[in-house]
Design a protein around this nucleic acid. Structure first.
Lengths: 340, 340
DNA sequence: TGCCGCATCCAAAGCGGTTTGGATATTCTC
DNA sequence: GAGAATATCCAAACCGCTTTGGATGCGGCA
């Protein structure tokens, strides 16, 4: 069933049927009702491909996964983030189109997406410092929203980010208030902008409290359970190691907890842990009393917000660039306690 | 730059240019080279939307996430699975289109995908027993491949699955060979077909060894760290609890390990654990000596395979339905040991 | 030389919608 | 009651590509 067929059955022109379905004003209310009824009856729905060609829009929003950021795919937050994205975009008639690319083909892939017209806008994730994708998007004229920010980029662009610096400042300050003086940091890969901001927040809290910054108490790397374990084990084995650690993800924290237990120590007593919690649905830290004390911000909510912003941008390219900073909440669990 | 523009610059007809680019034989080699050079120079690429309308194909493969299976999104294997899917489909010029739907709208969403023509084929994930999506796909005439199988469906369909039954038979048998007699099971949600098959494998091993099946030693539920912890804690607190446990995912196993440690026991000594390992990149169990003894099969590899099968199916709907059973490997780590 | 087949290219008809630019009643305005 | 505004509908162009059904020219063959 297509438009022509449907309109001829109705004894109307395709124009009128299209307009009736599209909600345009220049069609009689009764006619509109007839059309709607017939469309429902014959289960007619405008062909997206034709619609896309006619309107010049694909109704797709794109997300490109580069092997450079393979951790992205591999990243436990990926599922929740994508979930938030699709939830909102589906409601607006958009679907999410995923593309994978070799890292050295990344720019070519974006250009291809543009020249083929297969997406109307793009979500950029995991920005690094001076991320060159942003200039590229401007260059090819593709609407986009960044999940996070890229330090070092002067040109304005739309983004949605968590206030990572503030969150880590608060987290470290929370430990300081508990009396801790030697505080470690197990961070994500600091080439990622969010991780750099987190370190900055952590360091500024120490400085504000008049505490020295000791690089040997910190580490960075992929946010895996393994790495959390290895990093924590190293810290715990140190002479004069930390009595508390700020950890950049729940996955890392699970690894750190393992190391603490292996060392025969008790988390929240001998060693305090405060984690960043993306509020992932399958790694819930939302028990009555959370296991991990954490600074929490839902990555799914971020995905939803980003889809909203991007779709507004697509529908009206001349509107101003939206930028939104989300604050993380501090939740107290069982993994922290006063310094000995 | 579009076809018309490009062809007029070349002094050729759109027909010839299209054919030259498409690799059709009826075009002079020299002409073809000229066209290719011009296309590269002007960075021309056929508009996907127009191509889609003209050919009647969208070059999209679809994946629908239902809130019914919200765990799916939330599922840690999601990222890796999607990764495998996109890797392969991108190579064939397809992209992956994700759609989210309320569970009571699921059938409507599939029909919509069909009537709008927005995807050429669909990947069905997480089948349950008697999964009604399979009949629906047949009904609407949509090419599809199932990740897993659905017991109770008589009609043939294409699928790629792991031999879950055999894997769990082997896992339980491995524990039995170590001398364990009371063996627990912490399974996924058994409404999921794979989980039902896993239980069946587990039970058949016990039966084969002449051991009784004790339902109180088993549990099922979402495969979260929390649930793993709770289930293991319950088993360990039992009078005459199990000396070994088969666990359906690494995430569950991490929770179980926590319970074991909290109980003051040593994993691999007091209690043995064997897990199912999807070989997720961010929850690697691939250390020199793996932490967890496991039956392992890469879910990313499954995604790749599925994309291949689906694209073959789309290109040639009359070809036979492919069905592939992958075997899991058994890797020995530190989480198992002989019975006391 | 005349006919055929082959190589090469092109005009035009879709694909299934949206949208511009009227046409035709009908209703208002004074 | 005439002219204007309004409501309602339609024909046809267009989006950018693929593909069908020739057209043209040339060499080969009898």
């Amino acid at each position: 069933m297509n438009l022509k067929e449907l309109s001829s059955r109705l004894g109307l022109s395709p124009t009128t049927v299209s307009r009736a379905l599209g909600g345009y004003p220049e069609v009689n209310a009764e006619t509109r009702a007839r059309v709607a009824a017939a469309a429902a009856r014959y289960n007619y729905r405008p062909n997206k491909r034709a619609q896309a060609l006619a309107t010049g829009r694909s109704f797709n929003i794109g997300h490109v996964l580069s092997t450079k950021n393979k951790e992205q795919l591999v990243n436990p937050i990926f599922g929740d983030f994508i979930g938030g994205l699709t939830e909102t975009s589906a409601a607006a008639g958009y679907s999410l189109s995923l593309t994978l690319t070799e890292s050295d083909q990344e720019a070519a892939t974006f250009r291809k997406l543009k020249s083929e017209g297969s997406v109307d806008g793009i979500v950029l994730q995991a920005p690094v410092t001076n991320d060159d994708r942003i200039a590229l998007m401007h260059d090819i004229g593709m609407p986009f929203v960044v999940h996070g920010r890229a330090s070092g980029i002067a040109a304005p662009y739309a983004w949605v980010d968590v206030n990572n610096r503030h969150a880590f400042h608060r987290a470290a300050m929370f430990l300081i208030d508990l009396g801790h003086r030697r505080i470690g940091l197990i961070n994500g890969d600091e080439r990622m902008d969010f991780a750099a901001r987190r370190r900055s927040g952590y360091e500024s809290a120490l400085t504000d409290a008049g505490l020295p910054i000791d690089p040997t108490l910190t580490s960075q790397g992929a946010m895996t359970e393994d790495n959390g374990h290895a990093a924590a084990a190293r810290l715990l084995a140190m002479d004069g190691g930390p009595s508390a650690i700020v950890v950049s993800s729940i996955t890392l924290a699970i690894g750190a907890r393992r190391a603490i237990q292996e060392a025969g120590l008790v988390m929240g007593q001998d060693v305090s842990l405060i984690a960043y919690d993306d509020d992932l649905s399958y790694l819930s830290n939302r028990q009555d009393v959370p296991v991990f004390t954490a600074v929490r911000s839902s990555v799914r909510a971020a995905g939803q917000k980003i889809a909203e912003v991007l779709i507004r941008q697509i529908n009206d390219p001349d509107r101003g660039l939206e930028q939104e900073l989300m604050e993380a909440e501090l939740v107290v669990g069982t993994s922290t306690g006063p310094a000995a």
